[in-house]
């Protein structure tokens, strides 16, 4: 049911830092590169444990992506770290040519994604990154939902061959996935079975989706709740099966509704099981300054908005 054994709330970037340290312990080929944001990315533990495998790149993200691509040629498994904005838009061409087209085993790890970056405002609040990365052939795109899932995802991507975009965030959020969470890349997590409406959520919107589902269930509306942590490759089978069961779908993401999870779900269902879809996300706009909670409320990325969307679809 919709009950979880909660771990202490924590930020997903700390989950990344913890996962990176574990991956580094497990495999000597794991190296880390950071563009002057070691503390923000929580890469300090790895840096301390493996100083010779840590590369301080300075504020030079384009070079960081190229150096990471080059390191793979000697068999290394590079994890790059900077904010999501500087991990994608700023270096799109470097990723496209030197990493994706060249099929290099680089893990692009991106923190402070989305509105929840908060007060720094729209310059840093990237809401287009999932779209950009998903369009690159061969790129795996992962957007975990809490500390435990981010840690598990970080360890999992070290084990796979090929380029990955791993997106996480800044604020402390409810930590509800199990500490021994078995993360399977490309496999949806079916959190809860229901028959009236499907709620498909990713990243920071998964917990608000749980809260909305609890409220809906209390009113007798049963929710088929799915966590899509891997946006590419997408678990289309899980999405289609759920839509067939409920006939109504809500997608939830901290991203522009153009090019993100919602677009991918809509494309899948248009082909395999057309049905009404409501998109919770940022509607083709930039963000702004504010606290994470204020912003998520203002832009309708919260439990209340998900609940209301479901009620409206009934």
């Amino acid at each position: 049911m919709l009950e979880f054994e909660l771990s202490p709330s924590n930020d997903t970037r700390s989950g990344f830092g913890a996962g990176l340290l574990e991956a580094g312990k497990k495999n000597n080929e794991v190296v880390a590169l950071c563009a002057d944001l070691t503390g923000s990315l929580k890469m300090d533990a790895f840096q301390k444990a493996f100083p010779e495998r840590f590369f301080q790149m300075g504020i030079a993200e384009a070079n960081m992506m190229g150096v990471a691509a080059g390191l793979t040629i000697g068999g290394k498994i590079p994890f790059t770290g900077t904010f999501a904005n500087f991990s994608t838009g700023r270096v799109y061409d470097q990723i496209r040519q030197s990493i994706a087209y060249s099929h290099k085993n680089v893990k692009i790890c991106a923190s402070h994604a989305g509105l929840t970056l908060g007060e720094d405002g729209a310059t840093h609040q990237i809401l287009e990154d999932i779209g950009m990365m998903s369009m690159l052939p061969g790129m795996t795109v992962i957007n975990p939902c809490d500390y435990n899932q981010t840690k598990a995802a970080t360890m999992a991507i070290a084990e796979m061959e090929g380029p990955v975009y791993l997106r996480f965030g800044r604020p402390k959020v409810t930590n509800f996935t199990a500490p021994d969470h078995q993360f399977e890349i490309g496999k949806a997590w079916h959190i809860h079975a229901g028959s009236h409406v499907s709620i498909i959520a990713t990243g920071h919107l998964v917990w608000p989706a749980v809260e909305a589902a609890r409220q809906l269930e209390a009113e007798g509306i049963t929710v088929d709740l799915i966590n899509i942590h891997t946006i590419k490759p997408l678990d289309e089978a899980a999405i289609v099966a759920s839509a067939k069961k409920t006939g109504k779908v809500i997608t939830c993401e901290e991203h522009n509704i153009i090019g993100g999870l919602g677009s991918r779900v809509a494309q899948t269902l248009a082909q395999h099981h057309p049905c009404p879809i409501h998109f919770i996300g940022v509607n083709d706009s930039f963000g702004e300054s504010g606290t994470p909670d204020q912003l998520m409320t203002k832009y309708g990325l919260d439990a209340k908005s998900i609940y209301q969307a479901a009620k409206n679809m009934m």
Partner: peptide, 18 residues
């Protein structure tokens, strides 16, 4: 590595050298 979009090869070489 692929090349064509300019300015990227030196970074790749430095990575491989590292």
């Amino acid at each position: 590595i692929a090349s064509g979009s300019l300015g990227q090869g030196l970074s790749a070489a430095i990575g491989a050298a590292s």
